[in-house]
C-alpha cells in the first residue's frame, strides 16, 4: 500500500522549483565529486532541470511513494536515458545513483524551511526520501540491464564469429573451430555445417580443431555427433589439427573418435580430400619450382 504524501508537499515543490534546481546544481558543482572530465556543466544543468521538472510534475499528479505507477513512466524514461548516457560517459553506477541522491540535501533544506512543526518535517522527509531512494536504485537497475544487453550481444557475436564455414574448394568445406566445444556451441557448429553442406552440395567437410584447447570425452562425443549428422546427409567429415598433446590426453582418457578420419594438419586433410575427389595438384611448369 503506497503511502499518501500530505497535500502541501507538492505545492511546496511546485512553488520553489526554480530555487531547488539552482541549489541542486550548485551543490553538485561544488561537492568535489563533480566529474568535469566526464560531463559538461551545461549538460548537467539540463539533466537536473528536466529531472526536477518531471519530479515535481509526477509528484503533483500522484502524490504518493509508488513510483511504479504509470504517472512515473516519463520519469523512468528520463532516468533510463540519463543512466545509459552516463554509463557510456564512463560514470560508475554509484556515481549515477549519487546524482539522484544528491537532490536530497537541497530538497530537505527546502522542506525544513517550509514546514511548521518537527513532526511535519520528519514525515515529509521520510516520504520524499523513500521516493528518491527508489529512483536512485532504478538508475542502478538500468545500468545493470544495459550491461547485460552488452554481454548478451557479445555472446551472440562470439557464437557467430566462432564457427565460420568456408569453402576451400569445389565440394570441400572447411570449418575451423576456435575455443571450447560445449553442447550449445556444438549445436551452432552442427547447424551451420549441415546448412552449408546442403546449400553448397559439398561432399567433404574438414573440421579443424587446432584452436580447441582441450578435447575430453564430452568434446569427442560432440565431434562424433557432428560427423555422424554430416554422414547421414551423405557427406564425409575429416577432423584435422589434433595436436600431439591432445592426442596423448585423448588416449590417456580413453577418448575414441570412432572410425572418423583424422589428419594432423589442415594441409593433410585437404590433400586427402583432393585424393578422395580424384584431384591432383601439380606444379604448372618446372621453372616455377623453388621460386
Amino acid at each position: 500500500m503506497p503511502e499518501t504524501i500530505d497535500k502541501v508537499l507538492h505545492l511546496i515543490l511546485e512553488k520553489h522549483q526554480e530555487q531547488l534546481l539552482e541549489k541542486w546544481v550548485a551543490s553538485q558543482l561544488h561537492s568535489g565529486e563533480f566529474r568535469s572530465d566526464l560531463v559538461r556543466e551545461d549538460e548537467l544543468r539540463e539533466q537536473c532541470a528536466s529531472f526536477v521538472a518531471l519530479f515535481v510534475k509526477c509528484f503533483s499528479q500522484k502524490p504518493d511513494t509508488d513510483v511504479t505507477d504509470d504517472v512515473w513512466a516519463p520519469m523512468a524514461a528520463l532516468l533510463t536515458d540519463i543512466a545509459k548516457r552516463r554509463t557510456n560517459q564512463g560514470f560508475t553506477p554509484s556515481e549515477t545513483a549519487t546524482f539522484v541522491f544528491s537532490l536530497k540535501r537541497p530538497l530537505f533544506h527546502l522542506i525544513k524551511e517550509q514546514s511548521q512543526t518537527d513532526a511535519q518535517v520528519t514525515e515529509r522527509l521520510w516520504e520524499i526520501s523513500l521516493v528518491l531512494d527508489k529512483l536512485g536504485l532504478f538508475t542502478t537497475e538500468v545500468y545493470l540491464a544495459t550491461r547485460e544487453d552488452v554481454i548478451a550481444r557479445q555472446r551472440e557475436e562470439m557464437f557467430e564469429l566462432s564457427c565460420p564455414v568456408v569453402q576451400l574448394w569445389e565440394g570441400v568445406l572447411g570449418l575451423p573451430i576456435i575455443g571450447t566445444l560445449d553442447s550449445k556451441r556444438t549445436q551452432v557448429v552442427m547447424e551451420s555445417l549441415l546448412e552449408s553442406l546442403s546449400s553448397t552440395q559439398s561432399d567433404i567437410a574438414i573440421i579443424d580443431i587446432t584452436g580447441v584447447p582441450v578435447v575430453d570425452t564430452l568434446t569427442a562425443q560432440h565431434l562424433i555427433r557432428t560427423v555422424s549428422a554430416a554422414q547421414l546427409m551423405g557427406a564425409r567429415c575429416i577432423i584435422s589439427g589434433i595436436r600431439p598433446q591432445i592426442a596423448q590426453t585423448m588416449v590417456h582418457l580413453g577418448v575414441s573418435l570412432g572410425d572418423v578420419v583424422t589428419k594432423s594438419t589442415m594441409a593433410a586433410a585437404i590433400k586427402y580430400a583432393f585424393e578422395f575427389q580424384g584431384l591432383e595438384v601439380n606444379a604448372k611448369d618446372n621453372k616455377y619450382i623453388g621460386r
Binding site: M190, E191, L194, A229
Partner: peptide, 8 residues
C-alpha cells in the same frame, strides 16, 4: 540438416 540433427 534438421532431420540429420534430430536422428543424431
Amino acid at each position: 540438416p534438421p532431420v540429420a540433427m534430430t536422428l543424431v
